[in-house]
Simulated assay, not measured.
Amino acid sequence: MLNLRQIKCFQAVVELGNFSRAAERLRTSQAGISHAIRDLEALLGARLFDRTTRRVELTEAGRVFAAAALPGLAEIERAVDAVHDLGQLRTGLVRIAAPPFLGATVLPRLLQEVAQSHPNLKLRIEDVVTDMIAPRVRSGLCDLGVGTFASDEDGLEIQRVLRDQLMVFAPEGHAICTKAEVAWSALSDQPIITLTRESNIRLLTEVGFESAGVPLRPSLEVHQINTALSLVEREAGVAILPTYAFTGLNGRKISARPLVEPSIARDVSVITARERTPSPATLAVRTLLRKVLRDMVPVVG
């Protein structure tokens, strides 16, 4: 059966016009080159070279075979180099799906980390609602996803990165932040800023108030975490947000304390598709993403 070594030996003899020089290029013996060419000629049923004591020339069959085979060999070598580049992280594209808030806070930091560690890798960021992240990773439209996901998501490998607890975010120096933890019942007389019912965080917020036996009467309802943080900074109220909202503080004069009685938490995870082999670039970026999340989000509890 025809093999790549035979074609490479044939190429070396064609280009160098000499068996001994071909053997030097391929770091083998002249006998090894001759053996490979004889096997190739036997497989093809035709003589490929006319040999004399002074030179080696292609026969007509050799010229036909060279015209067809050598361009293909060049393509194979380029393909091998391309795969090696992927393995050595000299090239690669990683597509990441993230909810808008993490896309605006964590992924810019990730871009910096990737640029420093693996400057030849490219990232493509898709900031989408959380419900779209798992389907995009599962279908192969994205390589990585980050966010909060159900533990029984089908077809996904879920790597937990950190525990994310609901917290109260208040203007710096607010009386509610004098203690290390804040009970939900302590919020009864506070103007509450919540996310709208489109967010899973709102559902958890309602669970917290209901469990504490305190009615939830939002003072303000907003769609985005960044909007809630801006309102808190302007002393419009206190906001119930996840721990990862810390990534959006950026020096704002805001304090935060974990909410207890009950403590409500969930996992922030990075996901990949279980049935797809992640590329070396995806694995490298996943490692950096986990590091960035842990660096930017404080450990609570």
Rank of each mutant, 00 (worst) to 15 (best):
M1K: 13
R5C: 06
F19Y: 15
S20P: 00
H35K: 14
I37G: 08
R38Q: 13
D39A: 15
D39Q: 14
E41A: 08
L43G: 12
R47P: 02
F49I: 05
T52G: 06
T53S: 13
R54H: 10
A66V: 01
P71T: 10
G72T: 03
G72Y: 01
E77S: 03
E77V: 02
L89H: 10
R95H: 09
I96S: 05
A97H: 03
F101E: 09
L102T: 08
A104G: 14
R109G: 10
R109V: 13
E113G: 09
P119N: 06
P119H: 05
P119E: 06
K122V: 09
R124E: 15
I125T: 10
V128I: 15
V128W: 03
V129R: 14
V129D: 11
T130C: 07
P135T: 09
G147W: 07
S151K: 15
V161L: 12
P171H: 09
A175Y: 06
T178E: 14
S188G: 08
P191L: 02
I201H: 07
I201S: 11
L203I: 00
L204I: 03
L204S: 13
V207D: 02
F209V: 08
A212K: 00
A212T: 06
V214H: 00
L216M: 02
L216P: 05
P218S: 11
V222C: 12
H223L: 11
A228P: 10
L229Y: 10
R234V: 00
E235M: 05
F246Y: 15
G248Y: 07
R252V: 01
R257W: 03
E261D: 14
I264P: 00
A265C: 13
V270E: 02
T272D: 03
R276V: 03
L283Y: 04
V285C: 05
K291R: 14
K291N: 13
L293N: 07
